[in-house]
Design a protein around this nucleic acid. Structure first.
Length: 571
RNA sequence: CGGGGUAUAGCGCAGGUUGGUAGCGCACUUGCCUUGGGAGCAAGGGGUCGCAGGUUCAAAUCCUGCUGCUCCGACCA
């Protein structure tokens, strides 16, 4: 490819609406343009990167036994009614009607459609396992699209669905996909970590997010400094902190006027926050009251709360009336004296149960209890792991301190069990002739996000630094002065030789000044650059420059190709 | 969905209070000149100032409504 035939409009200034570095650089390097909020057109350079990522994904999916298919973007509401998600998906789903008034959506995901496909085609255990995937645009009407490709409304996703005859088969498919994902992101040159994630109560219970470590990421993750444990903040399991060795003193009610927050309470009693117990009151969509108690300085993890209360889908802060109805007092709560009932859940974090002589509300405005020892005083409660991880908490695997960092979720692997196959009747006959629902898994990769993540990880003040495997071109040949026939001819020879050697090469034959071409080269981020100047014509010496390190090698015309291959192999 | 900001040439911005010929830089076109890190000179092209009403002799500018974009927050299988 020649630069004079390439539509790569680079910008000297950044469009005002770009916030993160990957977004700014993709616009400046002429890789994409915004079409509307959260929707982008890929220009030739950006599309080359996308295709390279897609091809790596294809190779690894195929190697793991996957078969590529293509499903429609437009989906009828009927399948979604079957799974119950037409209503459940909410405003994030882009919906429309055809001329007959029939309802459709632009697919946010394809579990329903693929389950419908497979239930029609698969009858026998002999046809399983089956791994089908596609690479296609998905639509999610995000409340707030932002950060360019990192959260957009239309995005390219690889989604693979596995169908197995039993849980052991599903686990095997999961293991294969986990391994394939590790290979894919390694081949893309990314610094990533698979982290344990929450998958709610869905069958099988495995879920990992593949997270590229970057400060601009939207996911918080906790990772161990000593072993390989890593988990999303929502998933990170925590063991209860050690029991206090203090002797339990008798319970005492004290007047604490106006102390309806932990900070005011701790200040009033002049005690550290970790000696207090705080309450957070929720109601679920069935209006059941869920009272959660954690140590005063800890935060509640709502995901863990939802997983402990059967059937609790959505949580909201509880109404005052619901709290007073069971004898509670907002701002001054404790389990002591709360009326127990079928629709009242009292959840206490395991760390709280180990506390002795703590302070907690007295279920009466402006009064607290001192010397509370939950094991002695709380009565009947449900105990569990309910708090949100913090930096310094102990690793659940090895006990070493955890660190917190941020990351970009570029892929996730997830077991579905029989959630969709059972709801939609995707069954097969097993060896005994018995009908069973297929056991499923789903596995996604955000292709555009992977591109953005690579830029978040690879950039400097001059522009993008691509890993070779996903760079728009591997090698750039620059004649310093393309108006000089001898230089241009020399550069063309270099370019042709590189192409013949199978190197993905661009020739910058534009009649621009050298500085302009060098600035563009750094901005776009070709891993390796060959510069052909006056010296090349005189003595045959040409120059190889590595984008990532800035190192320069002066080589002769007959040894340059070997050196270029050697350098590229390390990029 | 709540709260802010903003909308003037492809991009970045000024002008707006005090209403009166629509401007600057970059980019673009042509010519000259220049060619190892975003050169210089000269001459050009390009905008119904987001949309719709209103006030006025006159609106980019003042008033009202709407819309887009964006930031913070909330939410997020």
């Amino acid at each position: 490819m020649r630069a004079t035939n390439l539509c790569a409009p680079t910008l000297r200034q950044v469009p005002a609406d770009a916030e993160v570095i990957s977004h700014k650089l993709m616009l400046r390097a002429g890789m994409m343009r915004k079409a509307a909020s959260g929707m982008y057109t890929f220009l030739p350079l950006g599309w080359r990167v996308i295709k390279k990522i897609e091809n790596i994904i294809r190779e690894e999916m195929d190697a793991a036994g996957g078969q590529e298919i293509m499903m429609p973007i437009l989906q009828s509401d009927e399948l979604w009614q079957e799974s119950g998600r037409w209503a459940a998906y909410g405003a994030e789903m882009m919906r429309l009607k055809d001329r007959h008034g029939h309802e459709f959506c632009l697919g946010p995901t394809h579990e329903e459609m693929i389950t419908a496909l497979v239930r029609g085609e698969v009858r026998s255990h002999k046809q399983l396992p089956l791994l089908l995937y596609q690479i296609q645009d998905k639509f999610r009407d995000e409340r707030r699209p932002r950060f360019g490709l990192m959260r957009s409304r239309e995005f390219i996703m690889k989604d693979l669905y596995s169908f197995d005859k039993d849980e052991a088969g599903m686990d095997e498919s999961y293991r294969k996909m986990y391994a394939a994902y590790t290979t894919i992101f390694r081949r893309c040159g990314l610094n990533f970590r698979p982290v344990e994630a929450d998958n709610g109560a869905i069958g099988g219970g495995h879920s990992h997010e593949f997270t590229v470590l970057a400060e601009s990421g939207e996911s918080a993750i906790a990772y161990c400094t000593a072993c390989d444990y890593a988990a999303s903040d929502e998933k990170a399991e925590l063991k209860p902190l050690a029991a206090s060795a203090e002797e339990a003193l008798p319970l005492e009610k004290v007047s604490t006027p106006g102390t309806n927050t932990i900070d005011t309470l701790a200040a009033f009693l002049q005690i550290p926050r970790e000696r207090t117990i705080k309450a957070v009151a929720y109601q679920d969509d069935g209006n059941r009251l869920i009272l959660v108690f954690v140590r005063g300085d800890h935060a509640v993890n709502e995901i863990k709360v939802r997983n402990l209360v059967p059937g609790a889908a959505e949580l909201r802060m509880a109404d005052e009336e619901a709290i007073t109805a069971v004898g509670g007092s907002p701002g001054f709560m404790s389990p002591i004296g709360i009326k127990r009932g079928e629709n009242t859940f009292i959840l206490v974090d395991a760390t709280v149960m180990n506390m002795v002589n703590a302070v907690t509300g007295a279920n009466e405005p402006d009064f607290h209890y001192k010397n509370v020892s939950p094991k002695r005083d709380f009565g009947e409660v449900q105990v569990g792991d309910l708090r949100l991880v913090e930096e310094g908490d102990a690793c659940p695997k090895c006990g070493a301190p955890l660190k917190m960092t941020r990351g970009i979720e570029v892929g996730q692997v997830f077991t579905l069990g029989t959630k969709y196959s059972a709801a939609m009747g995707a069954t097969f006959l097993d060896e005994q002739g018995k009908e069973n629902p297929m056991v499923m898994g789903c596995y996604g990769i955000g292709v555009g996000r992977t591109m953005a993540a690579a830029i978040e990880q690879g950039n400097d003040e001059h522009g993008i630094i691509w890993p070779r495997a996903i760079a728009p071109f591997e090698l750039l040949v620059v004649p310093v002065n393309a108006k000089d026939e001898a230089q241009l001819t020399f550069a063309e020879k270099i370019y042709n030789a590189a192409k013949e050697a199978g190197i993905d090469t661009l020739l910058d034959d534009r009649k621009e000044r050298a500085g302009v071409k060098f600035k563009d080269a750094d901005l776009i981020g070709y891993p390796l650059r060959v510069t052909v100047g006056p010296k090349a014509v005189e003595t045959g010496e040409i120059e190889l420059k590595v984008r990532r390190t800035g190192e320069v090698h002066i080589v002769s015309a007959n040894e340059w190709l070997g050196k270029a291959k050697e350098l590229l192999a390390g990029l």
